[in-house]
Nucleic acid binder design. Sequence first.
RNA 1: GGGUUGGUAGUCUAGUCCGGUUAUGACACCUCCUUGACAUGGAGGAGGCCGGCGGUUCAAAUCCGCCCCAACCCA
Length: 908
Amino acid sequence: MPSGPYDADAVEEKWQQRWLDEDTYAYQESEVDDPDTAFAIDTPPPTVSGNLHWGHVYGTILQDIVARFTRMQGEEVFYPFGYDDNGIASERLTESELDIRHQEFTRREFQQKCREVCAQYEDEFTENLQSFGFSIDWDNTYRTIEPRVQRTSQLSFIDLYEQGKEYRKRAPAIWCPECETAISQVETEDDEQHSHFHDIEFGVVDSEGQRPSGSRSETGDSEAAGQEEFTISTTRPELLPACVAVFVHPDDEANQNLVGEAARVPLFDHEVPIIADERVDMETGSGLVMCCTFGDQTDIEWYQAHDLDLRVAIDESGHLTDVAGEYEGMSSDDAREAIVSDLEDDGALLDRWEITHTVNVHERCGTGVEFLVADQWYVEMLDSTDEYLEAGREMDWYPEKMFSRYKHWIEGLQWDWCISRQRSSGIPFPVWYCEDCDEAVMADKADLPVDPLSDDPPVDACPECGGEEFVPEDDVFDTWATSSLTPLINAGWDWDDEQGEFTMENPELFPMDVRPQGHDIISFWLFHTVVKCYEHTGEVPFDSVMINGMVLDEDRKKMSKSVGNVVSPETVREEFPVDAARFWAAGSSIGDDLPYQEKGLRAGEKLLQKLWNASKLVDSLTPETAPDVDEADLSALDRWLLAELDGEAAFVREKLENREFSKARDSLRSFFWGTFCDDYLEIAKERVREDDDESAKYTLTVAHERFLKLFAPVLSHISEEIWQEMYAESEAPRASEASGEAASSEFQSIHRTAWPEPTGIDADHDAGETAMAVVGALRRYKSERQLPLNTELDTVSVYGNVDGFERDIRNVMHVETLETLEAEPEIESVVTGIDLDYSVVGPEYGADVPDIEDGIENGEYEISDDGETLSVAGHELSTAEFTVERERRYTGEGEMLEADGALVIVQQ
RNA sequence: GGGUUGGUAGUCUAGUCCGGUUAUGACACCUCCUUGACAUGGAGGAGGCCGGCGGUUCAAAUCCGCCCCAACCCA
């Protein structure tokens, strides 16, 4: 071992390079003889056109701890990585980098350019990730835009279609008129914008005699007959031509008379029904709302609930259609001004005032979204919600509470999943339609990936009507339709045309063992993945789900670019060792948010230094190869340490299996620091130096190597460094043994060694604890008297079980004579109080407990001579129900200390 | 607006499912100690109406109800 402090920079870089060079963590299929020994992590692919941010690092550290830990349990771990470059973000990036427009190219050409541009970003992203030394298998990566993944996406679409799980329907879509593309709900956000409210007068159509009889009260009738107009408040008068109905809240007494009547839309003169619906917001405006095609989400709901007409007044570029008559061709802004002005001329504009309100905008350009009607493909979900719920139940959720989110999501489903996007780039639908009968013709699975815009359909004539002309589908898939297939992509799911069935290249990987995911995006990502993979394979795609929280800043605020409180991984990397960051991340309770705190990283750094220093000491005390000592000959203290360490190894294993990172980390840290370094090592080093104690040398070696392995999943670099320095040579490489391949050139990483099996050594746990407590009491004795810790003590007498530890106590605390007492030392004791054991007394005496307490408080009690019975408040309490508290005064020579489990008398 | 989760010393947290009277640990703070791995160390100390109000109970951080605050999800 090198002398001096731990040089994290050099060590970490060295091992990161070595792990990459040697493919240390590459998935070795040959190692898997039973699917149960393969462990697959389905990592969600990040968008690589943005920067690596600290949240990525945090989530990946947790995955990596699981990966490294699981390898040490003897499983072959598949830890792949994906890059999501199939999205608007990547396309925009490509356009701006190359100064082109995607419309200038075919899809294939443009996607090729996207791949080229993204490749640079991917390299940077990869380099960044690799500077954290994650045990990702860099031979197993994919890009969501690559042809192989396009093929998987299109296969998925065709498979669901053939299963009858997909349908095509003309329905509303969220549309950005600026980008001229459909976008998904998750790509929109709320924005405060200035606008105007307009009070507009609508006429009531005289429809006497046409009303259904008996539907309203007499009074309502007569009132309606007298009303000839009403007021609508709207921020969007340009939608008047799209108006298809007027709504009134069922509880709106004042306007109830209008329900069932028809309204005449000003300027455009068409008639629309007046309908009652509780989705009307009675607080805003007049309480009467016009429903258009489509002003907002509620309009869509009304359209579907009440089977209303469609009047599409705004086209894909945000201009008015022929439905708008003389306003056709105007932009919606121009049309608004023109219509308002004409309303004013007509006297129909009653009022106009400025307001600020929230509007739904496209997150990328800030333009208010429109709702257009378009042909869409949908994945049917509503008919299978029971199955999806059951699938969710079959997975282990870490933390468990996240299952309730899944449950609520399933139960709250109201829409099938729209997978069509009217973007001009992306992964195309492999579909053509017969020009004559609109029959959908799917591509042949063997031909995928295809682009209908440039490829021919697989048939010459329509199988339905014989028509020979086809129209290619020009929509592309929602990116989630691809992102939800990662388990299938990772397992190599494909269509085998010869066998006529779906196959998997690595069937042993599916279902995947764990799916990591941030809790902010589980609904639209994880859930979709479960649903899609379940439909394709009939299996739940994950055995378990590991949900991580968000990284917050030091003030527990969410990190965001606009607030400017983001932490850049590069900066952290410059300031702290990676292992310190890993220590920090491992301090999280799974699912909880974790604030980034430098002191957390500093604590990690201190632990690294402690581990390094302790290792140097162990190295200096022990020979190159572990001494050959029969475990039966070990001293009591050594047996005690190894037995305690057995317990710690089992505890850490259990906690990591349950993804209770922080419990594993904290317990191991304090056991190592407190029990090993402060208690054991202090004693052992004296024994080795003074007596050349073989038992201690053996124990130091065994325990120390075990500590390195227990730390290895969390402190990956330093544990590798020290282990390689001290133990690698003496441990037979497992990999070469099994495979017989070029063993000499392959090095054995600590992360591919086995987790410590219990030594099974028996020890007197209580005597060890008591001995440590006695040492603690003596330290305190010296400390309180401001004596150096190596002050000699003449005689120490111990009343308590420290059998076998006498010599250790003597040596470490510099005690001349240590004797153990058979009988309690000369003590005068005064009763100072009675402690009740409430868990027994409570249920036994119930409401009398306060009386008993009062009796004790006032001294109105009696303890029997043998101390077995306590008489108080008319009850006789037995010995199990109370403890007598005494103040003990030692009357003999010297000073008495109280330790946990022992009385100690010091004579200096 | 609906749902979910959380609120415990100055800070971060354990404990809450399954109630038991001295509430866990770390950081920061205060005092003392340079002994041979480590002062990024060691020994000790102080610091809490467990978000608020009510209820159940012999007993509540823990169970129930209402309220306040925060985050996230859905609208």
